[in-house]
């Protein structure tokens, strides 16, 4: 294959004259995360953009460009503090539209997992995550809630075995398994 044939389309911010450099090692990091491995099927058609609500309402959000950056291995940029990936609405329209079954939303979710590893997760995301880890619920339970529920004729909230939750959330590595 000639160098020309190997060229991939590039976003405005990619240097054209130097040819396209792909950081395959970085891309493999993404591909190891569940859901991140389909990015390489992306052929940049842009079907994901037309029906994307975040692209419609937020200048600068473009799922095709996120896929391109990921394809080129620009993972560090995508998982940095204040990355554009957090503007995704998780609506799954791109998943429906993609003719290549890339499932861009799943790639973005995989990137978000890497952002957490990178210590660059937005605080509001961390707080919901931690609440579920600590209480088993995504919403706070006020002391008066069960009384209120009882007054309405509703059963009390079920107990959650937090020991079980903690145990199964322990990472695989601690069992000597690969991640």
């Amino acid at each position: 294959m000639s160098d020309d044939a190997r060229k991939k389309p590039s976003a405005e911010d990619q240097p054209q004259e130097a040819g396209v450099q792909v950081d395959f090692a970085a891309r493999r990091r993404l591909e190891k995360v569940l859901g991140g491995n389909r990015v390489s099927y992306c052929y940049q058609c842009g079907a994901c953009v037309g029906d994307c609500p975040s692209a419609r309402f937020y200048a600068g959000f473009n799922p095709r460009e996120i896929m391109l950056t990921a394809l080129l291995g620009g993972i560090d940029k995508l998982v940095a503090e204040d990355s554009i990936i957090w503007k995704c609405s998780n609506c799954y329209n791109c998943y429906e539209r993609c003719p290549q079954d890339v499932r861009p939303v799943e790639v973005i979710i995989a990137l978000k997992n890497l952002a957490r590893e990178n210590g660059a997760q937005p605080d509001e995301v961390t707080s919901i995550y931690e609440m579920i880890r600590k209480t088993g619920r995504s919403a706070p339970v006020l002391g008066t809630l069960n009384r209120k529920r009882e007054g309405m004729g509703l059963p009390p909230l079920p107990e959650i075995d937090m020991e079980e939750i903690r145990e199964i959330l322990r990472p695989d590595e601690e069992d000597g398994e690969s991640s």
Binding site: N90, V125, I128, Y129, I132, S138, P158, I160
Partner: peptide, 29 residues
């Protein structure tokens, strides 16, 4: 039928964005 022990599903947005395997495991539980 009310069953004992269900936790958060867990949250498809922020929990899944934090720990995908953990998300799947809690859902499986």
């Amino acid at each position: 039928v009310d069953l004992d022990g269900f936790s958060c599903c867990p949250d498809p947005i922020f929990f899944q964005a934090s720990d995908k395997i953990g998300w799947l495991t809690l859902a499986a539980r």
